Simulated scan of single mutants.
Amino acid sequence: MPAKPPLTTGIAADQLRALGEQIRAHRKALRISATTLAEAAGMSRITLHRIEKGEPAVTVGAYASAMAALGLNFGLVIPAPEAGLAQQASREGWIPARVRLADYPQLKQLAWQVHGVETLSPTEAWNIYERNWRHMDEQALTVHERQLVDALRLAFGGGDRRV
């Protein structure tokens, strides 16, 4: 029987959901099945599924095991909304759980056909960059957006891409 979930704040629940989404996105980017990752992390597939959903009842050790099996580091990141893009720019190689179009002007231009959406998953953002790179003005990329593109390329690119 699963543990009773602890009382969590809305912020904590959002952070766990974001962590779970990042773990799932990284697993999918590496093309690793849930069963394979669960076996490598020493847990059941159900526990891995609960981690990827961001359930608070799952132990932090299970989250750390899943991340270690994927080669991810488990570290503390203290969000500071007032720091905004300056803080994110200092996290090279970091991929947000959701990519806000308003933060990336070139991506926003490339995603002109996406209506009523303010955020994209990292995979969706990479697919838009990859499909439309020939239409992009590389000189207009901000440092922050260049870091995002580089991180997405590392995660999803496979090496022989033109992006």
Score class of each variant (00 low, 15 high):
residue 39 E to T: 07
residue 110 L to W: 11
residue 23 I to P: 00
residue 18 A to K: 02
residue 54 G to I: 01
residue 31 R to C: 09
residue 53 K to W: 00
residue 38 A to Y: 03
residue 47 T to H: 08
residue 91 R to I: 11
residue 101 L to N: 03
residue 126 W to E: 08
residue 128 I to T: 10
residue 126 W to L: 12
residue 67 M to A: 13
residue 87 Q to N: 00
residue 91 R to G: 10
residue 51 I to C: 01
residue 57 A to K: 13
residue 66 A to K: 02
residue 105 P to S: 10
residue 45 R to C: 01
residue 1 M to T: 06
residue 151 A to Q: 11
residue 57 A to N: 12
residue 47 T to M: 09
residue 77 V to C: 09
residue 97 A to Q: 03
residue 110 L to F: 09
residue 118 E to M: 05
residue 156 F to Q: 09
residue 148 L to M: 07
residue 83 A to R: 13
residue 46 I to A: 15
residue 135 H to G: 07
residue 152 L to E: 08
residue 127 N to R: 15
residue 94 W to A: 11
residue 127 N to T: 13
residue 69 A to T: 05
residue 119 T to Q: 07
residue 119 T to W: 06
residue 65 S to R: 15
residue 34 A to R: 04
residue 79 P to T: 03
residue 118 E to F: 05
residue 142 T to W: 12
residue 68 A to C: 08
residue 99 V to S: 04
residue 140 A to V: 14
residue 61 G to M: 12
residue 5 P to H: 03
residue 11 I to M: 01
residue 6 P to I: 02
residue 93 G to Q: 12
residue 49 H to P: 00
residue 14 D to L: 13
residue 90 S to M: 14
residue 126 W to A: 12
residue 130 E to H: 15
residue 21 E to V: 00
residue 65 S to Q: 06
residue 50 R to D: 04
residue 21 E to R: 04
residue 76 L to C: 02
residue 133 W to S: 09
residue 7 L to A: 06
residue 62 A to L: 06
residue 158 G to W: 15
residue 8 T to H: 10
residue 9 T to L: 00
residue 15 Q to P: 02
residue 2 P to A: 01
residue 59 T to P: 07
residue 97 A to S: 04
residue 135 H to V: 05
residue 91 R to K: 12
residue 52 E to M: 01
residue 37 L to R: 04
residue 2 P to Q: 01
residue 75 G to V: 13
residue 156 F to L: 13
residue 61 G to Y: 13
residue 131 R to G: 09
residue 89 A to G: 12
residue 119 T to D: 02
residue 15 Q to H: 06
residue 44 S to Y: 09
residue 149 V to R: 12
residue 54 G to R: 03
